[in-house]
Design a protein around this nucleic acid. Structure first.
Length: 427
RNA sequence: GGAGAGAUGGCUGAGUGGUCUAAAGCACUGGUUUGCUAAACCGGCAUACCCCCAAAAGGGGUAUCGGGGGUUCGAAUCCCCCUCUCUCCGCCA
């Protein structure tokens, strides 16, 4: 949600952003609805002021006197007007807010302007000889074609027990998932993110605050009896922790991390993308979230990106960092880096982290603010988040890149304390 | 799941239809006094939105006593629904 003052005072900047993001938001309608609402506010409030003044007078009059009764009669009409006005005002407000929620966030000036993903810029690469994809795996085999893969990740049993996209990890598969989780959480702790174990179901207010509702309802699993939503990412419960609160300026930045399973319906995803572990309905992820002072949010974004990159470096996995162009930015983001790991077996990039700055967009909607100690004013904080990291795709990259000629997979040194072995697999 | 009690500002807590513009205390904070600390005294102390002002400063207004609806000229107060919390019972890792 943008600040309405920006819409009123600098509609051109907003119009530019809408065009750059390729949004179909009708800004004129948003502004017209806001103006209509404001006009009605003034009208209704002045009527209410009249009502209050009359109440004060009547409090002093003895009840039942002719003057008193005359006032009652007079105020009956005003009361009816106010009631009518309030209904109209409620409708105008709801429609203005609904329209306001369709306005996308404004891209940062450092974001390349382009209509589609071809405009994304490679900001960095790591571990690629000559900056090109590689190194070559011993055998160029997609993870789902490794002979023993089904022994550590069991899809048919997942289908039987739940459905497609809900695999079982078995034996070394399960141990490997746990090793990655431990590693990611430890690294996040060391980097200063306080660990949180959040609820994995959230209510509608929380899903609205972080932007999953109203538009992306179809992407979330819902409970039948209680109208809860299974979290699509730990970002949702984590960011909502401070919803409707005012933080101390000196407590900023607040950095937190959480592991949760993530549940996504992925409606409309088919084909090659979804083979093996590439895309699942349930997967494990560690998420990093920051609440920061507005003046620091772009520095914090770079740090966040660095924290996520370091994980891939320690795992010795080649990757690239994409600075997303305006056309590939989400509705709520002002700037976003995607970290894509190279999966040698499939010869393709897999997104394992997405680090975003939302500026005040989420904070305004979620009412997360801080008090400026100098002015005493209350302002929305800036929020950021990034994955650190998504487990299954990291597992994919490790399986495909570290596959040895003898059919086993080498375990990176940093995982050995958690995994307990330096290789696994083989027939 | 059953029965009962409750929800008022950062916190404690008064307030059962009309200056509630929400008492009082605590906490926080500014000042005065005072060797220091402390105390005492005086003052300040919410959030959101609208309007005035080019803007800031400042001023005016409206709303908010868990949420929503109702009764009434007027609701923190009366009625209904919902949510949450607490106590007891039952069940349970």
């Amino acid at each position: 949600m943008l600040d309405t003052r920006l819409l009123r005072e600098h509609p051109d900047r907003v119009r530019q952003a809408i065009a750059a993001k390729g949004s179909d938001c009708d800004l004129d309608a948003v502004i017209a609805a806001d103006a209509a609402w404001r006009a009605k506010v003034s009208e209704v409030e002045s009527q209410r002021a009249r009502q209050k003044a009359a109440n004060a007078e009547m409090a002093k009059l003895p009840k039942g006197t002719p003057e008193f009764l005359a006032k009652v009669q007079e105020m009956k009409a005003v009361s009816a007007q106010v009631k009518e006005g309030e209904i109209a005002l409620g409708e105008l407000e709801a429609s203005a807010r609904k329209l306001l929620l369709t306005v996308p966030n404004i891209p940062h000036e450092s974001v390349p302007v382009a209509p589609d993903p071809s405009g994304n810029v490679t900001a960095a690469t790591w571990g690629l000889p000559d900056g090109k994809p590689g190194p070559k795996a011993a055998h160029q085999i997609p993870h789902y074609e490794i002979p023993w893969f089904q022994q550590i990740v069991d899809f048919p049993r997942g289908v039987k027990v739940t459905g497609a996209g809900f695999p079982f990890y078995v034996g070394d598969g399960a141990r490997f998932v746990r090793a990655l989780l431990q590693f990611f959480l430890e690294e996040a702790n060391k980097a200063g993110y306080v660990e949180v174990a959040p609820p994995v179901f959230v209510n509608a207010a929380s899903a609205t605050a972080t932007g999953q509702l109203p538009d992306k309802e179809g992407q979330m699993y819902q409970t039948v009896e209680d109208s809860f939503y299974a979290v699509p990412t730990a970002e949702v419960p984590l960011t909502n922790f401070f919803r409707d609160e005012i933080l101390e300026a000196k407590s900023l930045p607040v950095c937190r991390c959480a592991y949760t399973p993530c549940f996504r319906r992925e409606a409309g995803s088919y084909g090659k993308d979804v083979r093996g572990l590439n895309r699942l309905h349930q997967f494990d992820k560690v998420e990093l979230v920051k609440w920061v002072h507005p003046s620091t949010s772009y520095d914090e974004l770079e740090k966040l990106r660095g924290d996520a990159e370091r994980l891939l470096q320690k795992l010795e996995l080649p990757y690239r960092v994409l600075l997303m162009c305006t056309g590939d930015l989400g509705f709520t983001q002002t700037k976003k880096y995607d970290l894509e790991v190279w999966a040698a077996g499939q010869q393709r990039w897999l997104e394992v982290s997405s680090c975003s700055n939302f500026e005040a967009f989420q904070a305004r909607r979620a009412q997360i603010r801080y008090r400026d100690p100098e002015t005493g004013k209350v302002e929305p904080v800036h929020t950021l988040n990034g994955s650190g990291l998504a487990i299954p795709r990291v597992l994919v990259a490790l399986l495909e890149n570290n596959l040895q000629p003898d059919g086993t997979v080498r375990v990176p040194a940093v995982l050995r304390p958690w995994f307990g072995k330096d290789s696994f697999g083989g027939v």
